[in-house]
Simulated assay, not measured.
Amino acid sequence: MNLSGGHLVHGMGMALEAPTWPAITHAEVEHVLTRFPGAGRLIRLNWHSPRPFSAAALIDTDQGAYFLKRHHDRLRTPAALAEEHGYMAHVRAAGLSVPDIVKAANGSGAIALGEWTYELHRDAPGIDLYRDRQSWTPFLTAGHAREAGVALARLHRAAQDFPAPARADHPLIASFTILPAADPLIAADAYVAARPALGRWLEDKPWRQELARLFAALGAGLYDRLAGQASLWTHGDWHPSNLLWTEDGRVSTVIDFGLATRTCALHDLAIAIERTAFRWLDLGQDEAIGDVDAAMAIVAGYCDILPLDHADMDALWRLLPLVHVEFALSEIDYFAGIVGDPDQARIAWQDYLIGHAQWFLSRAGQDFLRRFADKAMA
């Protein structure tokens, strides 16, 4: 495996693509480690992550194994990373296994070097079964889906007394401000207005009309159903490759809190289902992409730890078709603004935001929602 020039990452479809962000180099790691004196001297660089929004690598030093992650400073600064690191420290203190952040010489959990921001994690316990699999691909077994639901509930239980406010308007955050609003179109206007690159990209498109159509078709009654949900810091990106596993198929460690912020438990649970119970990468080739049993396995595992009542279940299945909308807008903002890639922004708008929601209006999508609701409400 070529660890530099031949490195490829996941794209918006099935194919691997050239990375937006260059792979981390051996010399770069050596330089960064001088800012983390307790991490030791680099021995080898083992693996480059195929995840597309940052660069990351597993490394060995004479002090052990580490995970080094590099962000462009327009995406994450040390201050922005401190928000998620504080959340991770809180749930770790509550007994959850999450990566241990290494402190730099200046006492910070992240450093800035030129246009880059770096964070260093100690190697986390568990088997990385899904590390090369795309997002939006299912769990390998129903047992994994159920154990993922168990682990998500444990995370939510650990987070219940974390007092930090929601994160600032960083790119690529799984925020939740539009769907819970009394008027989601007004909330969407505010979301877009706060992100000039997103606004410029959308200005020649009928985006308000498209969102109004989707909200009317799929979002009726959401405001009333979500009004009583407790505010909670959540993960925001609960899919198989963000979980490490034990030999007997349980979740060992939860990783990658990059999208985390304050939302609510049902938002996070709906995202977990949306990420894993549908073969979205087959959309357009096969309409029957939803797996109700996989969705219910996640819910069943969750309810083993934190039971949901009838009203919660009703809100959950109604939230599911639109839960991706706000992060899809964040992806468009990232592609249009930070990356400057209008083609990828178009895919995020047409195929992701509209396409995923539109599927739920298809015969297959309506059938999925009916069967999921019947099982969830039974």
Results as ranks from 00 to 15, higher is better:
residue 72 H to N: 14
residue 301 G to C: 04
residue 140 L to R: 13
residue 41 R to E: 14
residue 181 A to V: 12
residue 125 P to N: 11
residue 197 A to S: 15
residue 27 A to Q: 15
residue 106 N to D: 15
residue 110 A to W: 06
residue 223 Y to C: 01
residue 258 G to C: 10
residue 341 D to K: 11
residue 289 I to R: 00
residue 95 G to H: 12
residue 277 A to I: 05
residue 62 D to L: 09
residue 375 K to A: 13
residue 210 E to Q: 12
residue 176 F to D: 01
residue 249 G to Q: 03
residue 239 H to I: 02
residue 215 F to R: 01
residue 116 W to F: 03
residue 344 Q to L: 13
residue 123 D to K: 12
residue 3 L to N: 07
residue 126 G to V: 01
residue 273 I to K: 10
residue 353 L to E: 09
residue 182 A to M: 12
residue 34 T to H: 13
residue 138 P to E: 12
residue 242 N to K: 00
residue 320 L to D: 00
residue 281 L to T: 00
residue 134 Q to R: 14
residue 208 R to A: 05
residue 177 T to M: 02
residue 102 V to Q: 06
residue 28 E to V: 07
residue 110 A to T: 08
residue 114 G to A: 07
residue 326 E to T: 02
residue 127 I to C: 05
residue 137 T to H: 07
residue 181 A to N: 07
residue 356 H to D: 08
residue 329 L to I: 08
residue 202 L to S: 03
residue 41 R to S: 14
residue 338 I to N: 05
residue 272 A to N: 05
residue 2 N to V: 12
residue 301 G to K: 04
residue 8 L to Q: 14
residue 243 L to Y: 13
residue 171 P to Y: 09
residue 53 F to H: 07
residue 229 Q to G: 01
residue 257 F to W: 11
residue 268 D to Q: 00
residue 100 D to P: 01
residue 177 T to C: 07
residue 321 P to A: 05
residue 77 T to R: 09
residue 6 G to T: 09
residue 29 V to T: 05
residue 91 V to H: 02
residue 345 A to C: 09
residue 303 C to A: 07
residue 342 P to V: 13
residue 305 I to H: 00
residue 35 R to S: 13
residue 103 K to I: 06
residue 256 D to R: 10
residue 53 F to A: 08
residue 128 D to G: 08
residue 95 G to C: 09
residue 120 L to S: 04
residue 95 G to R: 03
residue 46 N to Q: 15
residue 309 D to M: 03
residue 361 L to E: 14
residue 168 A to N: 08
residue 187 A to R: 14
residue 319 L to F: 13
residue 339 V to G: 01
residue 323 V to P: 10
residue 192 V to H: 07
residue 34 T to K: 15
residue 308 L to D: 02
residue 108 S to K: 12
residue 106 N to E: 08
residue 193 A to N: 13
residue 26 H to R: 14
residue 324 H to M: 00
residue 220 A to M: 08
residue 274 E to F: 12
residue 320 L to W: 05
residue 129 L to G: 02
residue 358 Q to P: 03
residue 5 G to A: 13
residue 49 S to V: 08
residue 98 V to N: 00
residue 318 R to G: 00
residue 340 G to I: 05
residue 203 E to L: 06
residue 179 L to G: 03
residue 300 A to C: 00
residue 142 A to P: 08
residue 281 L to D: 01
residue 147 E to P: 05
residue 298 I to P: 02
residue 329 L to H: 10
residue 170 H to E: 10
residue 154 R to S: 08
residue 292 V to R: 02
residue 83 E to N: 09
residue 361 L to R: 15
residue 354 I to V: 10
residue 28 E to M: 14
residue 51 R to S: 11
residue 73 D to Q: 09
residue 287 E to W: 06
residue 69 K to T: 10
residue 210 E to W: 13
residue 334 Y to L: 05
residue 9 V to D: 04
residue 226 L to W: 00
residue 90 H to M: 02
residue 184 P to M: 12
residue 356 H to E: 14
residue 24 I to Y: 08
residue 360 F to H: 15
residue 216 A to W: 01
residue 369 L to I: 15
residue 168 A to L: 06
residue 110 A to V: 06
residue 4 S to Q: 11
residue 11 G to M: 05
residue 344 Q to Y: 00
residue 92 R to D: 04
residue 81 L to G: 03
residue 136 W to I: 15
residue 283 L to Y: 11
residue 131 R to L: 09
residue 288 A to R: 13
residue 272 A to Q: 03
residue 51 R to M: 04
residue 99 P to T: 01
residue 242 N to Y: 07
residue 143 G to P: 14
residue 344 Q to H: 11
residue 274 E to G: 04
